[in-house]
Simulated scan of single mutants.
Amino acid sequence: MFVLGIESSCDETGVALVESGTSGLPRLAAHALHSQIAMHQAYGGVVPELASRDHIRRVLPLTQQVLSEAGHGLGDVDVVAYTRGPGLAGALLVGAGVACALGAALGKPVLGVHHLEGHLLSPFLSADPPEFPFVALLVSGGHTQLMRVDGVGRYALLGETIDDAAGEAFDKSAKLMGLPYPGGPWLAKLAEQGDATAFKLPRPLLHSGDLDFSFAGLKTAVLTQARKLGDDLEARKADLAASTQAAIVDVLLKKSLAALEQSDLKRLVVAGGVGANRALRAQLDAACARRGVRVHYPELHLCTDNGAMIAMAAAMRLQCGLQAPTDRYAFDVKPRWPLASLGAPEPQFG
């Protein structure tokens, strides 16, 4: 069975083809991705209307590219999967509309996928896939969550952010330092040249006794420190970047270790864009190795939003019989959609 996956939740258009059998993990046949970073840089952030229009331009050429690379045609596709939510409403509607139109034209069923479930299951596309159960640290865009994962669709929320997520803390702090959009990768790169102990920045909720996160206070502390530095900010920017990154990584590390201890599990999955951060990976690897814990990540090129994770999530749900695709081509999207609500199969709209 071939599953075509379409991702269009924000500022990346992703398409992928995954081959799934009755047993074993589904296999990625081909994928293609277009990032809108260059377009949004002039505005310092994502402009939803521009994002939607660009998805419209990109999704069909990317689909043709993926099928060509995989050596297959549209007629070989058995299911068309798409990101149903969460994300930008207009952007989600593009992917959903194209997927349902393709499904109707081909006479093939469609399946709406949860964006965060895509991230959560993306490490199964790697050369070192995890095994259930595990603790998952989801650090994607506006989401920072710790989940206990006992199987596909079996997710228990352990803790989440109560305000800014880790990715937002990276991006907003970078913007305060005058770094280009998207700020997170720029801050991480600059941090490699700085002293992580140069500035004493807060670690919000680090000793709260629960597994929730809060990064808004850190952003405020970075703003205060930048203003204190004044004209010296440029000379000390690398130190401030390194100190900011250290604060974020420290919180993610300690909370993840606490989640593992509370869950009595020895396997950790890290997924989402922030999961590509080198400092986070290095510290998690070292701390988990000391505790006999296995850590799994997506391949670096699959950390950001992509169609492969959507096709994979759809294939895994279908393979375990958790959700059936539908040949009803009316659709809705869910800009806000808690991952923990995925327990039981949900009927498609229409």
Rank of each mutant, 00 (worst) to 15 (best):
R290W: 09
M309Q: 13
L284E: 00
K200D: 14
G217D: 08
R203H: 14
R236W: 13
V249L: 10
L205W: 13
Q283E: 12
G217K: 09
K237D: 05
D231F: 11
T244A: 05
Q225I: 13
T220V: 06
K255C: 03
A315Y: 04
D212H: 15
D232M: 13
R294C: 02
R278C: 00
V222P: 09
A276Y: 02
A287F: 04
A235S: 14
A271P: 06
R227F: 07
A289T: 05
D210N: 13
M312N: 14
L302S: 03
A241R: 01
A313E: 04
Q225C: 14
L302Q: 04
L252K: 02
R267I: 04
R278S: 13
A226Y: 15
L318S: 00
H207D: 15
S208L: 09
V222C: 11
L302K: 11
L257V: 03
A279L: 13
P202V: 14
K255H: 01
A241D: 08
A315T: 08
A226K: 15
L223R: 15
D305F: 11
T220F: 08
S263M: 07
Q245G: 01
E234F: 00
R281D: 02
D285K: 15
N306C: 08
A289S: 13
T224W: 15
G272W: 11
H296I: 05
A313R: 12
Y297L: 09
A287G: 03
L268C: 05
A235N: 07
R290L: 15
H296F: 03
A238L: 00
L280S: 04
Q262F: 00
H207M: 10
A315I: 01
A287P: 10
K219G: 09
A271G: 08
H207G: 00
A238M: 07
F213N: 03
A314C: 09
L229I: 14
L257A: 03
K255T: 10
S243Y: 11
D232A: 15
T304R: 09
G209M: 10
G273S: 04
A315R: 12
L257R: 00
V269F: 05
L268A: 07
T220E: 07
L260G: 00
G209Y: 07
V274Y: 00
D285S: 15
Q283G: 06
L233Q: 11
N277T: 13
G275N: 02
S263L: 04
H207F: 06
A279Q: 10
A276L: 03
C288A: 07
L265R: 00
L223E: 12
P202L: 12
E234H: 14
L252Y: 08
T220P: 06
V295G: 02
G217V: 00
L284A: 02
